[in-house]
């Protein structure tokens, strides 16, 4: 299988700080990889290496099969980068920003203007096209920045914390953009601190902390891998609550947590507990109004994954 993004053992040191300590990433074509990690984990360094802005001290990275160091010029033809801080030129208008990028990508003046028009329309910036980008709101700037990275129709798009600092409505609009990029076949690498964002967008998630990959899986797999599921049973008749609690204690071997509505929750480690609980309820003739198995939220997973390493760091 060929990967659109294929990084192996990337290391990068800045003075005393080992920003990346052997990071490997793989993204199949047309997929979204979420790179998740706290501030300073190394996400941005990884993106800058993949986008040819930094050379790794060790390790290799290929974009569409092209080495980011040896074939940097060709890699730059296939990528689009949207940085953590919107890198638009505040003194130029929206349209001037995009036309400049088009000209630098060897579009003719006419093609560059047409492409700029398309993108401004798509990002709903047409009305502000002739205004200086310095007058744009934060959300508009992000959109212009993203538009600038799409002028060349890149096959691989790097989004470094594209929604940091955006309000929830703008964040969802940005998610729609990412989804439509993917629908069109682009490969996206997205770094984020927001678990919900990774959960919404990413096919797979790589969790980085202290410059190392500490977990990699699908969102569902990650939740299953790193956290225990919770089985919740609520009987129709509150009088059955003690029976339910007893049953849950038996099948899981853990102490159930009583719920306000008369039911109970209990952590379970394997699927067999589900069947045992169903059988037990049927045998006891208890009618239930809720019977559910919850995966942990990604926040819980993230906390579970990063907490131990956090504690090693003196505050």
């Amino acid at each position: 299988m060929t990967y659109a993004i294929d990084a192996d053992g990337l290391r990068k040191r800045f003075g005393e700080t080992q920003a990346l300590d052997g990071v490997s990433l793989r993204v199949p074509q047309g997929r979204v990889l979420g790179v998740l990690g706290p501030n300073g984990a190394g996400k941005t360094t990884a993106v800058r290496i993949l986008a040819t802005l930094l050379r790794p001290d060790a390790g290799t990275a290929r974009i569409g099969g092209l080495d980011v160091v040896r074939d940097a010029a060709r890699v730059r033809r296939t990528i689009g980068l949207t940085g953590q801080y919107a890198s638009v030129d505040e003194d130029l208008t929206g349209v001037q920003n995009l036309v400049l990028i088009g000209r630098l990508l060897d579009l003719s003046g006419r093609d560059a203007r047409r492409r700029a028009g398309e993108l401004l329309e798509w990002f709903e910036l047409t009305a502000a096209a002739s205004r200086r980008a310095g007058t744009y709101s934060g959300g508009m700037r992000r959109r212009l920045d993203l538009a600038a990275s799409l002028v060349g129709r890149p096959a691989v798009v790097f989004l470094d914390e594209p929604t940091t600092g955006l309000d929830p409505a703008k964040r969802e609009a940005m998610w729609d953009v990412v989804r439509s990029l993917v629908a069109d076949g682009s490969t996206v690498l997205l770094t984020t601190q927001y678990l919900e964002e990774a959960d919404q967008l990413a096919d797979e998630i790589t969790v980085i902390d202290h410059g190392r990959v500490i977990a990699h899986d699908t969102p569902v797999g990650l939740k299953r891998q790193a956290g225990r599921r919770t089985l919740t049973v609520v009987p129709v008749d509150a009088a059955d609550a003690p029976a339910v609690a007893g049953l849950l204690a038996r099948v899981s071997g853990e102490e159930p947590v009583p719920l306000a509505g008369g039911g109970a929750s209990v952590p379970v480690l394997d699927e067999a507990a589900m069947g045992a609980a169903v059988d037990g309820l049927a045998a006891a003739g208890v009618a239930v109004s809720e019977f559910s198995l919850h995966l942990p939220t990604l926040d819980e997973v993230f906390a579970a994954l990063t907490q131990p390493s956090r504690e090693e760091v003196p505050a």
């Binding site: 060349g152 629908a183 069109d184």
Partner: peptide, 13 residues
């Protein structure tokens, strides 16, 4: 609204 905007398989400029 996207198709005109991105077609990743199209050759870059």
């Amino acid at each position: 609204a996207l198709p005109a905007a991105t077609a990743p398989t199209a050759p870059t400029a």
